[in-house]
Design a protein around this nucleic acid. Structure first.
Lengths: 244, 244
DNA sequence: GAATGTTTCAAACGATCGTTTGAAACATTC
DNA sequence: GAATGTTTCAAACGATCGTTTGAAACATTC
């Protein structure tokens, strides 16, 4: 068994066990048992459990974000300076992720389920590690969105990006929970269908009318009825009446 | 120290520690230390750590879902049989939740951050416990949405509901992660602003054009460009061109 | 082929976990 | 106010955790 073989076996076993049971509940003995390697191998090859967790993410996150940037580069080169359509940007960011999530054989499927819920992970070192790896990519996509939707304030872009991440997270990892509530009537086996479903939803949310944010907000009260129609779309005029 | 006092101190301490560190990482010694009660008090009053976790949820989830149903009842009584507007339904479901999340003094704030990420919790007993408590409420709201958006298939409603839950989860628990990426430029202190932001996004997503789902989908391939425009809105005709 | 470096292995380390115990303290009942 | 029931307390239980150890096995170097 070569060095890399042992390393890979540990990484693969860790990944699938983390998806199934989480970081804390998964013990090194479970991991080394599944990987069929000696218990001490984890500390020998990775140094610690914490470093192993980071390596599980580093391995896949690099490729995911590289693909995202490559796709964005391609689109921007094609557009030759013109702003991209929102749907193109979302497809580059979320499409690449869902494609990885759908790739059962490459092993990316399990990883994406793990990634989805890790943004809300309580453990500080994981969250900040993840955010650090993503910062550059998010910057590029945020800029593209700002260019694509010039009427939308930067802060609003950030928030909607964040909301979209949440929707994607649940889309990937959530069919289990959804099915308990839906009493088994949900089928998430078809990743293409899930992709088109999610993309419609995300586009609708991203291009929703801007909320009217009163400049001097009384922070305690919530006024659900106050809302103003604003045009969010840059490539055409939206004159649709609002149905709030 | 009365019985209920000890119980309450344990529940409150658990809740805030669970938010901060998660279920598995929080030890009973941390909890009883923070609550200033004896270690054995947890097993005496709750039976086990698992039962304590369930009680933390039971305590607040009941009230949350009761309020949601009460609000829906009120709206439906007002409408007198007519279908509600999608925005009304969302406000009853998500508005009540965000109101609880914004209520710093009542302690609901911490709980909602916890709840948001618990739907993707790996531990089976937590997920199924949660789904069981929510099933009745989700049923009622799903029915209201189906009535409100008769053109939308039931399965699509389920998925969009699920996506919205994800967005809400990130909205409530996610400003930390968002701020690392956004380099501290995000302010989530104003809950009213967050509410209007999220509601715009959710409504946009819920009323997005239906995706065209090819009846015989090749489950491996993803075709991001195939998409059809469909009218989702029930209360008026949407003739907006699509900008995909 | 001896020497050196790398990887594996079984066993043990100290620490911490959730839970249990039995006595003491306290409250309630009659 | 004795008896009974409830709650608190310090201490210990066995189990499991991540990590370390030192020898053995294996691979590579010269």
């Amino acid at each position: 068994m070569s060095e890399t073989d042992t390393r890979l076996r540990i990484l693969d076993a860790s990944e699938s066990l983390f998806v199934e049971h989480g970081f804390e509940t998964t013990s090194l003995r479970q991991i080394t048992g599944k990987a069929k390697v000696n218990l001490a191998a984890v500390n020998y090859h990775f140094g610690s459990k914490e470093a192993l967790i980071q390596e599980v993410f580093r391995r896949r996150l690099g490729r995911l974000n590289d693909q995202r940037l490559k796709e964005l580069d391609r689109l921007e080169a094609e557009a030759a300076g013109a702003p991209l359509k929102p749907s193109q940007i979302l497809e580059a960011f979320f499409g690449v992720a869902l494609k990885m999530a759908a790739d059962k054989q490459g092993g990316g499927s399990a990883f994406m389920r793990l990634l989805g819920r890790t943004y809300t992970e309580p453990a500080e070192f994981i969250r900040s590690f993840l955010a650090e790896k993503d910062a550059a990519v998010v910057d590029r996509f945020k800029d593209a969105l700002l260019k694509s939707l010039p009427e939308v304030p930067c802060e609003e872009i950030f928030w909607r990006f964040h909301f979209m991440l949440g929707a994607m997270s649940y889309a990937i990892s959530g069919a289990d929970a959804l099915n308990i509530v839906a009493r088994g009537s949900i089928d998430d086996s078809d990743s293409e269908v899930l992709y088109t479903r999610l993309m419609s939803f995300l586009l609708g949310g991203l291009r929703a009318p801007l909320p009217s944010l009163s400049t001097k907000a009384s922070s305690a009260t919530i006024k659900p009825d106050v809302k103003k129609t604003a045009n969010v779309n840059s490539t055409a005029t939206r004159t649709t009446p609002q149905f709030n």
